[in-house]
């Protein structure tokens, strides 16, 4: 009788591993246990039923363990001991119920891998959109300005629309004026021209250990080409020192 990769020779009371070409001559107790399992193949046989007369429980358990080793040895299970219930000899080999704690190297089916990967990707996407403590939104235009005294100031511009080429022209004019400052007291000067191009927001920022020093300037014009920039005005709004 074939049991997995072993041949069970009932007449000679031996179990032969055909793959490894090893035979196991069974003693009376071992033969009794295997016979019980073979006769109830596919069913759970109780410990009580497996015990032959005068057989000690520990002996019986050792026999089961030996049979499991001999019949198994791979990742497939043919004989399984179910605590408090009994032992089952499966009709066909079955995959083990892998335990995360018992077999950390246990292989996962592709579907599980896929599920885990999808969960991780979904988590990352959600965390990026939901948890992002975005404390700084990048400006549309930035330029480093060096004052006459060598101080470095970052000029940032937020655009109202996509007309960046027009914006650059205006920014260049403003940057040129700011560059003419002897000294600039700010780390950052941020500009934003309103959508109708008539109102200009200027924010000057200086970060210190204790607090942010800042100054808002609002400028409204009657028409787009109206001139207002002058060295005096830059000093008045404290852009130039």
């Amino acid at each position: 009788m074939q049991i997995g990769h072993c041949w069970y020779d009932r007449q000679n009371k031996q179990l032969i591993d055909q793959a490894k070409d090893i035979s196991w001559p069974l003693n009376d107790q071992e033969y009794w246990v295997l016979e019980q399992l073979v006769q109830h193949r596919g069913q759970v046989v109780s410990i009580h039923q497996l015990k032959s007369p005068h057989m000690h429980r520990t002996t019986m358990l050792k026999i089961i363990e030996s049979l499991i080793q001999f019949l198994g040895g791979g990742k497939d299970i043919l004989l399984e001991y179910i605590p408090n219930q009994g032992v089952i000899l499966y009709k066909n080999t079955t995959s083990p119920h892998a335990s995360l704690l018992m077999s950390p190297r246990g292989t996962l089916p592709y579907s599980h891998y896929l599920l885990i990967i999808m969960l991780v990707i979904a988590g990352c996407v959600y965390a990026y959109s939901g948890l992002s403590t975005t404390s700084h939104i990048k400006a549309d235009y930035s330029e480093r300005i060096v004052s006459k005294q060598g101080g470095l100031t970052q000029l940032l511009v937020y655009a109202a629309d996509e007309e960046n080429y027009k914006l650059n022209e205006q920014v260049n004019i403003i940057a040129k004026h700011i560059k003419s400052c002897d000294a600039i007291a700010w780390q950052t000067i941020t500009l934003a021209l309103s959508r109708d191009k008539l109102s200009l927001s200027i924010i000057m920022l200086q970060q210190t250990e204790a607090a942010w020093l800042y100054h808002n300037v609002k400028l409204s014009r009657a028409y787009v080409d109206q001139k207002w920039l002058s060295p005096n005005w830059l000093k008045e709004v404290h852009i130039c020192e």
Partner: peptide, 25 residues
């Protein structure tokens, strides 16, 4: 209203009004 710069420890915020594109620190 978009928060474009925030430093909660130093109680500082820069906001931008849209669609007008006006800033306030």
């Amino acid at each position: 209203i978009q928060v474009i710069e925030a430093d909660l420890e130093r109680h500082f915020l820069v906001i931008k009004f849209s669609p007008s594109n006006q800033l306030w620190a």
